[in-house]
Amino acid sequence: MRLESRHWVFLGLFLVILLSMLLQIDLGVKVSQDTQRMHDYIENLPPGSVLMLSFDHEASSLPEIRPLALAVLRHAFANGHKLIGVALLAEGTGIGYRLMEQVGKEYGKVYGEDYAFLGFKPQYIAAMLSMGESIRQTFPEDYLGRPYDDLPMLAGITNYEQVDGVISIADGSLTTHWVEYAGNQYGVRVSAAVAAAMVTTYDPYLASGQMHAMIGGLRGAAEYEQLIHRGGSGLRGMLAQTAAHVYVILMIIAGNVVYFLNRKKGRKR
């Protein structure tokens, strides 16, 4: 077994994260304006408001998406909002249902009365436009195969006009389509909880007012957990995240130093 330099770098990162997690120190975080805006949005909605949560992500991004989704779900349930879950990427279907069921149980919510999960529809643009006309026609049955009309909380909900906001929980570009088709065409308020890699993609939509609010990445989750006074993977992961970033910065500096030293040696020869 021969270890190369990259193996040592990986091993170093592994040890840094492992030690940070074993220490279990709560660093606390400074809440950003974007996260505060998202929190205030859900907080200020009257109890009983209808929010649609769209699980637009793949299973591979679950470690990052889960803390975000849990924080938003907990806040929405705690404020007595009615939640409709959908998935426009197939892999988000089972995950979305499980998360809603888990948090629903925590807050004593009843499926069908306080929340419902409608499942997956392919062709996300067609699904978004179709829900603007009729959610019932788009999802004649929920994820569990129950007819739409058998779910009491969905009585009176025809299309986006009865939905107070859509929150896209995404790891890719689907939130853009929510803005384009549901937000701009049907006037529903679109917000997002996204993987950190997508934050710069959605910032322009937030700045131009096309998107109402956004939280991003594990840091966004940590800030939100702090705001709702409910610790979770976000806050727990902050020390590890900080330590990992410091480690990466040190590696970049070390890499540059080695590069310039080698270049200097080469010139001398």
């Binding site: 997690m21 470690p63 993987a195």
Partner: peptide
């Protein structure tokens, strides 16, 4: 942000 995202994924699996 992408680095942060990948670190978060790894931290999540480590957790």
């Amino acid at each position: 942000y992408t680095v942060m995202s990948r670190m978060s994924t790894f931290i999540g699996r480590m957790e």
